[in-house]
């Protein structure tokens, strides 16, 4: 149904009824406009999951600001402005997330039963060994003592001869270096 249809109630009439508290009209309105919202969101966003997120955020916003619709005016520009805003929010959120995080789809493939993860655990151990092999000796030593052997900084300092401050710096640099390596592997 489009807003200009004469055989059925227009979107504007349904929304006006919803403003008066008519739940049935409100449901019909939301169902009718959802494909329109989805189509608008797809113009800006390509990932289907994100499109559906935007549609849902838009529906929530429509609910929050439904009192601002002025009966008699076209509904489409009102809805389009909301979709546009929520799409921009989603894109910003997505760019913030991708700037901070590395997405590793295989990381999700684990099971509740530990024994079921044996193969993945073996591969992870090999991968970790490979990454640690590429670290400078002092960074590797710092990481082994503090993260794998789980020694305290003081104990690791006594065993390695590195100062506590030096251990902290080397662990930080090692993790940063490994994170970059993981990112390279995923995107190559």
């Amino acid at each position: 149904m489009a807003s200009g249809d004469t055989n059925e109630e227009s979107w504007g009439d349904l929304l006006a009824a919803a403003q008066r508290g008519d739940g049935v009209a409100y449901r019909r309105f939301l169902i009718a406009v959802t494909p329109f919202l989805r189509a608008l969101a797809r113009r800006r966003i390509h990932a289907d999951e994100v499109v559906e997120d935007v549609v849902q955020e838009t529906l929530l916003t429509v609910h929050r600001v439904r009192h601002t619709y002025e009966h008699g005016r076209a509904v489409e520009p009102w809805l389009a402005a909301i979709v546009s805003r929520r799409s921009i929010d989603a894109l910003r959120k997505s760019s913030r997330t991708s700037a901070r995080e590395v997405h590793n789809p295989l990381a999700y493939e684990t099971f509740a039963e530990p024994s079921a993860n044996t193969i993945e655990a073996g591969e992870s151990a090999k991968e970790l060994a490979r990454l640690m092999g590429g670290l400078p000796p002092r960074q590797k030593e710092a990481l082994e003592l503090t993260k794998l052997k789980e020694l305290s900084l003081e104990e690791a300092s006594a065993e390695s001869g590195q100062s506590v401050a030096s251990l902290k710096v080397n662990v930080h640099r090692a993790i940063k270096r490994m994170r970059i390596e993981i990112g390279k592997d995923l995107f190559e």
């Binding site: 403003q19 508290g21 409100y26 939301l30 169902i31 559906e52 609910h63 009192h67 619709y69």
Partner: peptide, 23 residues
């Protein structure tokens, strides 16, 4: 998020329809 969740959201919102004072 899926289309089914969108349908559930529509149900929840329409169930929460209360009269609002139009600006």
């Amino acid at each position: 998020m899926t289309a089914q969740q969108t349908d559930a959201l529509i149900d929840a919102l329409s169930a929460a329809a209360s009269p609002v004072k139009r600006l």
